[in-house]
């Protein structure tokens, strides 16, 4: 029986070591990808291509989700605030919750599902079909040629997507709150403008989305690069990307919120 318990402990230890090892590998991988100087004349067009598949292709889902979330927030907020005669505060409520929380977080979750999983699958497939090896044999570092442009495209796209999400959300709230429920437009905007601050709300939301973009893309490209080169390995890596990114987003969101808005 005691052997059984020891085995369990050893298993746990091995699991812990594996995890730490893979975090270490991911760190080295990231540093190599970011700080390697790409010697290609066409690295700008490589980045453009990735901005297209990572950023532009995520636009539709981000815009549609933002619109609906803004509309729902306005509707829910109105129904509660009308009881206190403060329906003017709907604008303020929607803007603050979008800029501080929902914009960065929901965009990052959608981004992980849409772009992150696609990145992992694409890189994993390139590994499975030996494209990465053959690139190495031709004398090109896949970290520079394949990983770096995808990573930067993710980091650049995320804040832009989050800004679009928040703006579309607020416009959705205007549609529901002002045009449909009949909140007076002037006080809708003025209550918003009185409480939203450029640095504390928009700036911090932007920082959040940058951090999320960095982490999600990092997880996605590493999982693809580290995938076991079989179809099963790639599909597992894709699942891991979505799970790890979602957990990382929500955990980091709490930490960032505590640091940014903790004193208030």
């Amino acid at each position: 029986m005691s052997i059984g318990i020891l085995d369990r402990v050893a298993q746990l230890g091995r699991f812990g070591l594996d995890q730490i090892q893979s975090i270490g590998r991911a760190g080295v991988f990231l540093i190599l990808a970011i700080f390697s100087r790409a010697g290609f004349s066409n690295r700008f067009s490589l980045l453009t291509q990735q901005l297209y598949s990572v950023g532009v292709m995520s636009l539709i889902i981000v815009t549609v989700s933002g619109l609906f979330i803004g509309m729902v927030l306005a509707l829910q907020g109105y129904n509660i605030l009308i009881r206190y005669g403060s329906e003017d505060a709907v604008g303020q409520m929607v803007a603050l919750s979008l800029l501080r929380e929902l914009g960065p977080v929901v965009t990052a979750l959608l981004f992980a599902g849409r772009a992150g999983s696609a990145l992992t699958a694409e890189i994993g497939l390139m590994k499975t079909t030996e494209q990465l090896s053959s690139m190495e044999m031709i004398g090109v570092d896949p970290l520079k040629r394949v990983i770096a442009p995808r990573f930067w495209a993710g980091v650049i796209s995320m804040p832009l997507l989050a800004a679009i999400f928040s703006l579309v959300g607020i416009l959705g709230a205007v549609m529901v709150g002002v045009d449909w429920l009949g909140i007076y437009e002037g006080s809708f905007w003025s209550s918003m403008q009185a409480s939203v601050s450029l640095v504390a709300d928009i700036g911090n939301g932007l920082i959040k989305s940058l951090v999320f973009g960095f982490v999600v893309t990092w997880i996605a490209v590493f999982q693809g690069y580290d995938a076991i080169p079989t179809s099963e390995g790639v599909s597992r890596a894709t699942t891991r990307t979505v799970v790890y990114s979602s957990l990382a987003i929500l955990g980091l969101d709490f930490i960032l919120t505590a640091v940014m808005f903790g004193e208030l």
Binding site: L125, M126, T129, E130, S134
Partner: peptide
Amino acid sequence: FQSGALFT
């Protein structure tokens, strides 16, 4: 390479 490994 075994699979050809053309860049898709």
